[in-house]
């Protein structure tokens, strides 16, 4: 009996570990290949260790794409976009959960309907509007279309529903203004939820491909995913896979670290059904 149990346990862990290897291996490969050249990466005898080409690969990316500028562009767009979006969607979700007012339900229904409309339906009018306003090739043009995230509002509303109304009422008796209640009581209580939605928004901006692709054509304004696209689709220069891998690593590693750090505060079950 115990033998059978032990065998079962071994099988269970074996399956789980094989799964883990399948999911982690591409990341490890990405980092190793960033230090190698095409001869090794595409050669007959692949080598799974560190090579000597990391600096050379980085220099090439820097020379071809002014990569430090690209990273800066991505950071600026992501930080500003995430900050504004998180503030306005937290406020909106909180209000929709905690205040009954004329028009409140209408706003909520509109948000729910908008959630069903795929992003693709918006790219043409968005591009049309932005080019008329001369906002193509600007940070604003990339940040603006994703600020009013209906997913974030929906998630914040769900979380804020659990926020005790009694807390608001006793604060009112003490003479606190509505905004003060939000700032001083609701925000600290809802902090894990705000971090979760904030991380999703951060990921959205950092990984964004479609909107930057149509809005940015000036290489000086490129974000990280656009450099990846350019490298893989460049018809003038054969692809240096090692250099590509070093760019992929800069795209992936920050998010992975952030995710692991925030993981404990992450309410994964809610996140799972909210990403859409």
């Amino acid at each position: 009996m115990t033998r059978k149990h032990r065998l079962n346990a071994i099988i269970v862990y074996a399956v789980l570990i094989i799964g883990m290897i399948i999911f982690i291996a591409p990341y490890v490969y990405m980092i190793l290949a960033a230090t190698q050249n095409n001869e090794v990466i595409l050669g007959k005898n692949p080598f799974f260790g560190f090579g000597n080409y990391f600096l050379k690969n980085l220099q090439e990316v820097q020379k071809d794409y002014q990569y430090t500028q690209v990273l800066l562009n991505s950071v600026i767009i992501t930080v500003i976009g995430t900050t504004i979006s998180t503030v306005i969607t937290t406020l909106a979700g909180y209000v929709l959960a905690k205040y009954r007012f004329r028009g409140g339900n209408l706003i909520f229904y509109l948000v729910m309907i908008a959630r069903m409309v795929p992003q693709f339906a918006l790219i043409i009018p968005t591009f049309y509007i932005l080019s008329r306003m001369n906002l193509t090739n600007t940070y604003t043009g990339v940040i603006l279309p994703s600020l009013a995230s209906t997913t974030s509002v929906f998630m914040m509303r769900q979380y804020a529903m659990d926020f005790p109304t009694e807390l608001m009422e006793s604060a009112r008796i003490d003479g606190a203004s509505e905004f003060m209640i939000f700032r001083r009581i609701a925000v600290p209580v809802l902090q894990p939820a705000i971090l979760t939605t904030g991380l999703l928004t951060f990921m959205g901006y950092w990984n964004a491909y479609l909107f930057p692709l149509i809005i940015l054509s000036d290489p000086k304004k490129f974000t990280v995913p656009l450099v990846i696209q350019n490298m893989t689709q460049n018809t003038y220069k054969s692809l240096n896979y090692g250099a590509l891998m070093s760019v992929l690593a800069t795209s992936v590693v920050p998010i992975v670290i952030l995710y692991i750090l925030l993981q404990r505060k992450f309410r994964s079950n809610n996140v799972a059904s909210a990403i859409k």
Binding site: W206, N207, Y209, L248, S251, V252, I255, I275
Partner: peptide
Amino acid sequence: PAVTSVVA
């Protein structure tokens, strides 16, 4: 994979 850029 769910947090990683699909492009990457």
